[in-house]
Design a protein around this nucleic acid. Sequence first.
DNA 1: TCTGGGGTCCTAGGACCC
DNA 2: TCTGGGGTCCTAGGACCC
Length: 421
Amino acid sequence: MTSAIALVDCNNFYVSCERVFNAKLIARPVVVLSNNDGCVIARSNEAKALGIKMGTPLFQTQHLVEEYDVAVYSSNYALYGDMSHRVMGALQEFTPEVEVYSIDEAFMRLDHDPASSLFSYGLRIKEKVRQWTGIPVSVGIAPTKTLAKIANHLAKKSSGVEGVLDLTGMSEQAEALERTPVGEVWGVGAAYAKLLRARGITTALKLRDADRLWVRKRMTVVGARIVEELRGISCLPMEQCPPQKKSITCSRSFGTSVESLGEMREAVATYMRRAAEKLRRQKLAAGVVTIFINTNRFSKEPQYSNAITYELAYPTDVTDELLEWAYKGLGQIFREGYRYKKAGVMLNHLVPSDQLTVRLFHNSDFERSRRLAKVIDAINARHGRDTVRYGMAQSNCGWKTKFNWRSSRYTTCLQEVLSIM
DNA sequence: TCTGGGGTCCTAGGACCC
DNA sequence: TCTGGGGTCCTAGGACCC
């Protein structure tokens, strides 16, 4: 048996999810927007062909949307998250060695008989995912993760027919690397691409054959690993169990600007409640809490942004306590007279919540709060978010994120399942 | 009018200690 | 004229990812 790495990546994932539940979208240009309906974050091939770029603010591409009758959707993360689970489940039918790398892609280790065709293995994966979920994927196969990424990229681009590319052969690799601009290599962003091009390193092939000492010096060990991976030497191991989180953030841009401390308190409290839920879901507690607020950096109005960080005497996973820090911090950094556009909270120094030290004072209060939080989480998990909630009722909700074009939560919400008329 | 959100890793340099 | 050296810890900032 020999072993290769496959990268399976869903094509235009969010758009494909929308299409699974709405056949009228097939062959139409479709885009999905970021939170608050701000930017384009997913495009169908038809939308790409119109020249709609990734990350473009909707208002800047409105003319194309109207002229070509582009279907526009708000993000529907409940749907996408659930579809992602189903895709990953299909992949696990082939091997337990699946690394879920992001919501729409996974690495797989393929152990195979050298005589058998990896290409047809890839086709079987693709077909299984399509049957189980309706989502189209591309499969790139190579000796290392970085090469598998490139294989996947090319599978998507050129073929379109099968969407599978086996790049385990040396001559195929060289040819593929030569066709790949250096900026498209995984791990080479805008800054490194510029640096490399200035040195005449314009393709992935030239990066593979570049002077390793120079790369190590200018691009740190991260760059050195990329070069090794391009040479077929694996430096990035498969990671099946996701490592423990080191930080948890919850932040949003507001639907409309916030000017009053009262509204800002509601927003920050909401984000802190969400962050606390995430924290408890992962069985962690936070030792450091940060609160931040920003005005709209794109506007010409007076700008202000600030943040404050607290180190807690005792790590906590209790919403009440975290809310106290949020309110206190906000009181410190909030200034009247600005139109705020965004706020958020960050939790750091995360430790397992079953190993918290016993508190010197009020430990029984703390334990009681933790039990209460558990009950509230269970109720909300069963009956929907915010069925039971800490703190005051929300009055003015202008700050709430906009989702003007959200599709139904077909797979996760009984009231919204697809109905056939 | 309208511009996302949530992460990770690496390094340099300062603070501090013995 | 001479003005230590090495180790560790922490943080800010830069780079990247989807």
